[in-house]
Design a protein around this nucleic acid. Structure first.
Length: 476
RNA sequence: CGGGAUGUAGCGUAGCUUGGUAUCGCGUCUCAUUUGGGAUGAGAAGGCCGCAGGUUCAAAUCCUGUCAUCCCGACCA
């Protein structure tokens, strides 16, 4: 019997509504009373914490240090880099009063913190011996968005923003690419989300950047989601904020900078890429609960004793495990943890105990296996890895099957408007053709992928010579 | 910011046309029996009808404004 209170909209009926249902019913978030500002509930926040743990470990491995910068930026400071201002001004939230007084220099709630980092760097950098600097902060930023959706686009969102300073362009560029690789590995090894890696067109790049690199993921409704970006700034910020150092040659020199970030938008990606009509499906390595133990006929003391024994053993093995000994029926619990996307369910009841086994059920494909008690830890660990790999492979297959070459306007139309996914286009390099595709199909250039495999030699828009492959898609 | 839809208990809703005691289901709480795919019975609690004005003897209902959410477009991570 379908319980109306628990049921969610089916994906094929209304994908957007399905997404919202999952966000709410899996208890990831709730709406607050201010548009676009959401409440990250414990279960949703816990996923973000797992992402933080994974990234912090990777950051530390390449010498990144965590810091914290102020929430507010004086308008006068924010205004120093021209392109940057033009990019962000339309979506700034600005505080104009402090206490009873009007502020002479209004305070911008940070939409991003380049300016603060730069101001600080100008003070603390004076010699090549002070370089490189690799700072990162975990914080939230505010951008006054017109329309908002949980995790995908919010007025406030949580993210990390890294800001680095190097002596040379080569080092800085290398940093931007290395951080992109870290993001890519986060997707591959933790989120089970495959990304297309590449460089943004000039039109799509970050305000103030020389080059923007990106990881793009593909949602099951055929839309692309920009999931993280890294930027090479050249020396433009260093000039605007007067950051200079005395080089090995004794001369005052402008350093080269980068910035890079991923946000809670990654949660949106996880939800959509893996979720199904029963709710969330979490990749094991960032799942707050990796295994949930469901005892059957709990009132029998041997059942609860065995369940607690499993709990303890798995905890000691470093697995994130929960025993649900609430007095709901087993069936209720099955649905509950499926909605919440817990990768593995461990069932243990009188029948199992008699036979010295337990049942493991995989959330990603619903399959069940019977396991000998003695294999508890090894089998759970192994199966978590299996689930991760299956989830990644499934998403990767979808990505491949929905990345198609478009040699003509007709093919572009078919891919973008009927099939969904990426349209690979041979691009002449003229922004006019990029704009034309946007006008015709509401699709944007997601990136020029690093893996350039040309399949034609002329631009399908203007017919001129084309050498670069660009991925176009409708985007979130 | 334009076009459309929706706000009534934690969730889903009836009532609104034609103003007059706030409807039902789920969930929650208590007790008992249950437990291998959303258990059953009995009892109970829970509402400024999104918010603010207005019309009226009287507003969930009519009018104006506003806020929020969802969908479709233009901007972003």
């Amino acid at each position: 019997m379908e319980n109306k209170n628990e049921a969610i909209t089916r994906q094929e009926d209304d994908f957007a509504q399905w997404y919202t249902d999952v966000c709410l019913k899996a208890e990831l978030m709730d709406y607050s009373s201010v548009k676009g500002f959401i409440i990250y509930r414990p279960y949703g926040y816990a996923i973000w914490e797992e992402i933080q743990n994974a990234l912090n470990a990777k950051f530390k491995g390449v010498g990144v240090e965590n810091v914290y910068m102020p929430l507010v930026i004086p308008e006068s400071l924010f205004n120093r880099e021209k392109e940057h201002v033009e990019g962000f001004a339309p979506e700034c939230l600005i505080a104009t009063t402090g206490g009873a007084n009007k502020l002479e220099d209004p305070l911008i709630i940070r939409p991003t913190s380049e300016t603060l980092f730069c101001e600080h760097y100008a003070k603390v950098i004076s010699s090549y011996r002070d370089l490189p600097k690799r700072y990162n902060q975990w914080c939230s930023v505010v951008r006054w968005e017109k329309t908002t959706r949980p995790f995908l686009r919010g007025s406030e969102f949580l993210w990390q923003e890294g800001h680095t300073v190097y002596e040379t362009a080569e080092e800085a560029r290398k940093d931007a690419l290395r951080m992109l690789e870290i993001y890519d590995s986060l997707g591959r090894d933790f989120l089970a989300v495959p990304f297309v890696k590449g460089i943004k067109t000039d039109r799509e790049k970050f305000a103030g950047a020389v080059e923007t690199y990106t990881i793009e993921s593909l949602m099951p409704d055929g839309k692309a989601l920009q999931s993280g970006t890294t930027h090479y700034f050249g020396t433009s910020f260093a000039e605007a904020f007067d950051i200079k150092f005395q080089g090995r040659d004794g001369k005052l020199t402008r350093p080269h900078q980068t910035s890079w970030g991923v946000s809670t938008r990654l949660l949106g990606s996880i939800i959509m890429v893996h979720g199904d009509d029963n709710g969330l499906v979490l990749p094991p390595r960032v799942a707050p609960i990796q295994v949930v133990i469901i005892p059957i006929q709990m009132k029998r003391p041997e059942v609860l004793a065995k369940a607690n024994e499993y709990l303890k053993t798995l905890q000691e093995a470093g697995i994130r495990v929960k025993l649900d000994d609430s007095d709901h029926t087993p069936g209720w619990k099955y649905h509950e943890y499926e909605m919440k996307g817990v990768p593995l369910r461990l069932e243990v009841g009188p029948r199992d105990i008699e036979n010295g086994v337990f049942v493991l059920a995989k959330r990603n494909d619903g399959s069940k296996l019977t396991v000998n008690e003695s294999d508890l830890v090894s089998k759970v660990k192994e199966t978590l890895d299996v689930v991760h790999n299956e989830m990644y492979q499934k998403a990767f297959k979808y990505l491949l099957e929905h990345s198609k070459e478009a040699r003509s306007l007709e093919e572009l139309d078919t891919i973008l408007n009927k099939e969904g996914g990426y349209a690979k286009v041979m691009w002449c390099g003229d922004e006019a053709c990029e704009v034309k595709i946007k006008e015709l199909y509401q699709a944007t250039a997601r990136c020029l992928p690093f893996d350039q495999i040309p399949f034609d030699d002329k631009c399908p828009i203007c017919g001129r010579k084309a050498e670069k492959v660009v991925f176009f898609a409708k985007a979130y």
